[in-house]
Design a protein around this nucleic acid. Structure first.
Lengths: 211, 211
DNA sequence: TGTATTTTAGTACAAATGTTCTAAAATTGT
DNA sequence: ACAATTTTAGAACATTTGTACTAAAATACA
């Protein structure tokens, strides 16, 4: 039991992800989606009662991917270098880009799905702590300068969260370069926010050293 | 001629701004708005054909305010100090917050109103140049360090645009402090991104110096 | 004051969307 | 192979929303 069913469910989610990313959640109706899939919209409603249920399911999918990424990074946090940290940032950015509709419509989705908002807030709080751990580890390894003013690291974490969540939205409007370089570009912008905090050793590690 | 009319138009825009900020543009219909104003929705349509026309008009209003602010800042750009620059940032942030619905729904609005998107992209390009001028002026005044790597200033400008556009959206989800301190908080986050580029003299000027 | 114009209210209509329901078809497990 | 369950298609319904239209009211102007 439940075999073709789950397969259909996954087909629906994959197609929804694609359409959401292309047009935005508010420009995709259940009927549009059913038509794109070649199934009846009655059938679609059997699997997902409405658009919000689909969004919720896709958020869960992204959250699963992200927490796997995070647990991988945390495992090696003790001995991490800035370059490795930024490698993790790139992987995160790539995954977020796969689910970009969520971040392009961030506020509206969070307003409409309070349970997603609550889960995201937890996640953000965890990420904040992890940034703290990461910075502490980098500092211990001699990669990071001392704070040049009180609370600098915490404020940097704030920036990092903001940029991590909204680089896609900003790029959707302002990025005009080669689409293939988009993620790299924003990893670079992100890196530039960290760079001033790094020691010369740290800059060398990410390849931005003096010589 | 046209006296009570323009007054009504302004009343509509003021009420729309309030409702949009509270609920988001997609949760406000012409009928909701008419009801809140105590007028018929037929009348409302006489002034604004649809929600998009209202959004466009409010964007123009914000753009006017912002360009006045910008021309004021540009006038004193030659002799500007970091503290004055951040004062301008605060004024900008306050004005943006008044029209926050635009930034909370940024991507969706830009997708739906291509003419607004085009105008915004021009504005962003101007702002980018102004950041460049600002940084050059600060550097000339001895407030700013040399670039510690190639392209650092340009990348900082990129960050500044991103944060300037999305601090409101981020705060809508994540900020849990005193609402009255919200703008100050994000000015501080913004400041923290500039601080590592400042000379000791620059840090003194913004009150973040060593002693 | 009287006429032309602008503004307003109210109604009606069309399109889209989420939602519900029924019955047929397919699949599963015994 | 048969019964139970899941899945699917399709129709029907209610609601919302933008839009258009008409006629009355208010206003401006000469």
């Amino acid at each position: 039991m439940m075999k073709t069913g789950t397969r259909t469910r996954q087909r629906i989610m994959a197609q929804a992800l694609q359409l959401f990313n292309e047009r935005g959640t508010d420009a995709v109706s259940l009927r549009d989606l059913a038509q794109a899939l070649g199934i009846s919209h009655g059938n679609l409603c059997y699997h997902f009662a409405n658009i919000d249920a689909l969004i919720g399911a896709l958020y869960e999918e992204l959250a699963d991917h992200m927490s796997k990424l995070v647990s991988g990074a945390v495992a090696s946090a003790e001995t991490i270098s800035p370059g490795q940290g930024l490698g993790f940032v790139r992987l995160s950015f790539e995954k977020l880009f796969d689910y970009r509709f969520l971040l392009l419509d961030f506020v509206r989705i969070m307003r409409r799905l309070p349970e997603v908002k609550a889960r995201y807030q937890e996640l953000a709080s965890v990420r904040r702590q992890q940034f703290g751990l990461l910075l502490a580890a980098l500092h211990a390894g001699g990669w990071l300068k001392e704070e040049s003013f009180q609370g600098q690291y915490a404020l940097w974490a704030e920036q990092a969260l903001l940029m991590g969540d909204f680089w896609i939205a900003s790029g959707e409007i302002l990025y005009t370069g080669d689409p293939a370089d988009r993620i790299s570009h924003y990893v670079k912008v992100f890196t530039a926010s960290l760079a001033p905090l790094l020691t010369e050793q740290g800059l060398q590690d990410i390849g931005w050293g003096k010589e």
